[in-house]
């Protein structure tokens, strides 16, 4: 265990990098998911087809291949990305392609009557999407989004293979200097597990937060409180 204690600052740095990559990759993933997912539902072929190709290509090939391609092959086109950029880009695009299908599925499975009610109220497609369809679909998206984010977190370990000094990279470094393989790997396994668990907790908190009738419940609670004050 002494290697773990001795190299704790390095592990801490690695942990911070892992969290940073997760957060940036997650943000990119969400942007990609909504862009590609909504484009996939568009009436216009010019949006639908590129989105479809993007989703199939990024879901159909390995994340590691994509990451290596951005890191090793892109420089031949004269584009040299910082390892961290290549890593975040690959993670965000790859997981975003999966999450795009979540967005598409959740929106496509909305009740048809909701769209009809919007038309009857004169709402144009953009307003419909922004005010009604997307907010309603969020609760259905949250659980699968949670899975995508846990996947993304675990896949951040691959960034160590393109020289980003994350938790896995630090562990490998400590292993090769100290030879204390068991302690160091058990430690980072537990750390990854704790992070996954936190993400799961966050997802279920968001699920409760965005549940459809949650808003009404809080409003009513306020109302009841006022009535009690009035009665007293």
């Amino acid at each position: 265990m002494d290697a773990v204690i001795q190299y704790a600052p390095l592990l801490w740095q690695g942990l911070l990098t892992t969290i940073l990559v997760t957060v940036m990759g997650g943000a990119l993933c969400l942007v990609v998911a909504f862009t590609a997912g909504l484009a996939r539902l568009s009436r216009h072929r010019i949006l639908r087809w590129p989105a479809g190709i993007f989703i199939e290509v990024f879901r159909g090939t390995s994340l590691l291949v994509q990451m290596f391609w951005l890191f090793f092959a892109l420089p031949f086109f004269g584009i040299q990305l910082h390892p961290l950029t290549a890593a975040v880009l690959a993670l965000g695009l790859n997981e975003g392609a999966y999450a795009a299908e979540v967005v598409r599925g959740a929106i496509a499975s909305r009740a048809k009557g909701q769209t009809e009610a919007c038309i009857a109220l004169g709402m144009d497609p953009a307003l419909r999407l922004r005010r009604i369809i997307i907010p309603q679909s969020i609760p259905a998206m949250l659980p699968p989004f949670g899975n995508v984010m846990v996947d993304l977190l675990k896949n951040t370990s691959l960034v160590s293979l393109v020289t980003v000094a994350d938790l896995t990279f630090s562990a490998q470094m400590i292993r090769s200097t100290t030879g204390q393989t068991t302690a160091i790997f058990i430690t980072i396994l537990v750390m990854y597990f704790a992070l996954s668990y936190l993400l799961t907790l966050l997802t279920s908190w968001l699920e409760r937060r965005f549940a459809l009738d949650r808003k009404a419940l809080t409003l009513q609670r306020k109302e009841n409180a006022l009535m009690k004050v009035g009665a007293a």
Partner: peptide, 19 residues
């Protein structure tokens, strides 16, 4: 076809405000 994520009031004011 009420909007399930909105209160009765919000259902009614949605289109007058935004449309």
């Amino acid at each position: 076809n009420l909007f399930p994520h909105m209160t009765a009031l919000e259902n009614i004011i949605e289109a007058p405000i935004h449309v």
